[in-house]
């Protein structure tokens, strides 16, 4: 391999590097279409979609907490709230302001009126 031949070859390689072959018409479009056809769906389906819609694990944690607190309030309501669960289960009537079962509130009303 003589020096001139080597130099000529290097020049040829440089030319080849500087002249990338033109792509066939439509090849890029076809490959892009393949890519999109094979691409896993960005919008997940089924339970995964619901999971994403509510915001993933952090949002789900908040939902669980809110649900548990709500359930507990239903089971063991604070003393100043009517025990609706017990009323539903036992069939007892609801407390109302005019049945005398809430004297504190009525008395409070009088206090306001009297100043």
């Amino acid at each position: 391999m003589t020096k001139p031949d080597t130099d000529m070859l290097e020049t040829l390689f440089q030319d080849a590097r500087a002249t990338p072959p033109a792509l066939p018409d439509g090849l890029m479009d076809r490959i892009m279409a393949d890519a999109l056809a094979q691409q896993p769906a960005s919008g997940a389906r089924g339970w995964r979609a619901i999971w994403r819609a509510i915001g993933g694990a952090p949002a789900f944690g908040g939902l669980v907490t809110a649900t548990a607190v709500g359930f507990w309030i239903g089971v063991a309501p604070p003393s100043n709230l009517p025990d609706i669960a017990a009323q539903i289960i036992t069939g007892a009537s609801f407390a109302t302001l005019d049945d005398g079962s809430a004297p504190e509130l009525t008395a409070f009303g009088w206090d306001i009126e009297e100043g």
Binding site: P20, P21, L23, M28, I31, A35, Q39, P40, S42, G43
Partner: peptide
């Protein structure tokens, strides 16, 4: 791309197709 990003599909296609061809 695997997560569903169409823009990534386009960039990969544009970058890799000429080299492969």
């Amino acid at each position: 791309y695997a997560q569903g990003d169409a823009a990534a599909a386009r960039v990969l296609t544009v970058q890799l197709t000429p080299r492969a061809f």
